[in-house]
């Protein structure tokens, strides 16, 4: 069972490290990362395995958006099913 963590914000040193550390602290195992920088804006999509979360999905989502606020990044966590529903028949 996966979740998608999307991160958007102004490019800066250490974004991946901070978001990864946030995931690790909650027991979310990163299985894929793709990222681009376009016009100074950083966009990253992480697929994380949430089967072994140490906290609830709700709390994980809240913690990641808190991290986003602290680091001036837009971080959202969404369950993968919404993407699977929309893009897979």
């Amino acid at each position: 069972m996966n979740a998608v963590v999307s991160v958007i914000g102004r490019d800066a040193v250490g974004i991946i490290a901070k978001v990864s550390a946030g995931c690790a602290a909650c027991g979310a195992n990163i299985s894929d990362i793709s990222q681009t920088v376009l016009h100074e804006y950083f966009t990253m999509i992480m697929i994380v395995d949430i089967r072994n979360l140490t906290i609830s999905f709700d709390e994980f989502s809240d913690q990641m958006s808190e991290l986003g606020k602290k680091e001036k990044l837009d971080i959202h966590v969404m369950h993968e099913d919404i993407f699977n529903s929309m893009h897979r028949i």
């Binding site: 793709s34 999509i45 959202h76």
Partner: peptide, 12 residues
């Protein structure tokens, strides 16, 4: 595996 373009489309 989820495709990054699909994910971005949904987010958008």
């Amino acid at each position: 595996m989820l495709d990054a373009r699909d994910i971005l489309e949904t987010l958008n």
